[in-house]
């Protein structure tokens, strides 16, 4: 039953998206960085990235509970379910410090991106 619903949803979404897919941009190789979430903490909690470059941020949620990667400074927001991996592109950033946090556990899940 659940799988059926999932398939239906998948098909529906795929149909929706095909409308939006006239030009699939070629994704150039981006510098990649990995962040893990464990016990509602980011590892590492401080990420240094080159300034003025688009970065591929891979966030892996090792917790069983969902988390939402959120940053007002980076204008990013993405739900990551328990045990899932999410890819978030950030930047290009001017040099500076950009805090991010897990919206579901904002007290402990805190980190920052430092663009240099």
């Amino acid at each position: 039953m659940k799988a059926g619903v999932r398939n239906l949803v998948t098909i529906f979404i795929a149909m929706l998206l095909t409308v939006l897919l006239p030009v699939l941009p070629v994704q150039a190789a981006r510098p990649e960085l990995q962040i893990e979430i464990r016990d509602h903490l980011f590892y590492p909690s401080v990420v240094k990235v080159p300034a003025n470059t688009k970065i591929k941020l891979v966030v892996i949620n090792r917790d069983p509970t969902p988390e939402e990667f959120e940053s007002y400074e980076l204008n990013r927001e993405k739900v990551i379910m328990g045990g899932q991996k999410a890819i978030i592109f950030i930047g290009p950033l001017a040099p500076g410090v950009y805090p991010f946090f897990g919206e579901f556990n904002p007290k402990t899940a805190q980190g920052k991106v430092i663009a240099e």
Partner: peptide, 28 residues
């Protein structure tokens, strides 16, 4: 339904399903 299947959605389009679906909904 969407919340329950968000994990599946996320994995679509090379992990970009969530963004794309949300963007599509915004445009609709």
């Amino acid at each position: 339904a969407y919340g329950a299947s968000i994990g599946t959605v996320s994995e679509m389009f090379e992990g970009m399903g969530q963004e794309l679906l949300n963007a599509a909904m915004q445009f609709v």
